[in-house]
């Protein structure tokens, strides 16, 4: 994933810059948003709405961090809002859309989905940003507002947790 060069501070964010990021990284934004809300339509809507918001509030971008990280924060927030809205629509606790699902299936994919869903939200989100969007640690750190070292530790913890739980079930060994 490319990084848009920072313009000098004080210059307003242009529509052209936003369009460049959208056309270049839109698929990655949508993939992560879909993973967060677990629904293709809602995920796409979240990205759409995030960019509408970015266009409208582009004057507020202060260029104190990367444009990508700023956009990722907006996309993640919009995705979370869509997920919460969906949960209200379904009369469901939003957390149940993440970790509340308990499935003890024999199908590998189903179990892995369950394990991924059971990860703490930060681990799961970091995993999505890293795997689906191929973001570097610095951008992930800005996007979820943690230190870069925390990103590495979080990813490591997620990886170890998944590996450990996979190993608990002998038939999963490849």
């Amino acid at each position: 994933m490319g990084v848009t060069p920072l313009r000098s501070r004080g210059q307003s964010l242009t529509l052209g810059e936003l369009e460049t990021v959208y056309r270049r990284d839109g698929a990655a934004f949508e993939r992560v948003a879909i993973a967060i809300v677990r629904d293709e339509q809602l995920g796409c809507d979240a990205v759409h709405d995030a960019f509408v918001l970015a266009v409208r509030s582009r004057e507020s971008f202060r260029r104190q961090g990367s444009l990508e990280a700023w956009l990722w924060r907006i996309v993640i927030n919009e995705a979370r809002k869509h997920r919460a809205h969906e949960a209200r629509l379904l009369a469901t606790d939003p957390n149940e859309l993440d970790g509340g699902v308990t499935v003890n299936g024999t199908d590998d994919g189903t179990r892995v989905r369950t394990l991924v869903a059971s990860l703490p939200e930060r681990q799961r989100l970091t995993l999505f940003l890293r795997y689906y969007a191929d973001l570097d640690y610095a951008t992930i750190a800005q996007a979820i507002d943690v230190k870069p070292g925390t990103v590495a530790a979080t990813l490591s913890a997620a990886r170890e947790r998944l590996a450990a739980q996979l190993q608990e079930v002998p038939e999963w060994e490849l």
């Binding site: 959208y22 698929a27 949508e30 993939r31 993973a35 994919g109 394990l115 991924v116 590996a163």
Partner: peptide
């Protein structure tokens, strides 16, 4: 990542065309 995890993540949200 475990190959099963990678494969499942791809199945959960397959690669997409640029919108």
């Amino acid at each position: 990542l475990d190959p099963v995890v990678e494969r499942t993540l791809d199945e959960m949200v397959p690669p997409r065309p640029q919108p």
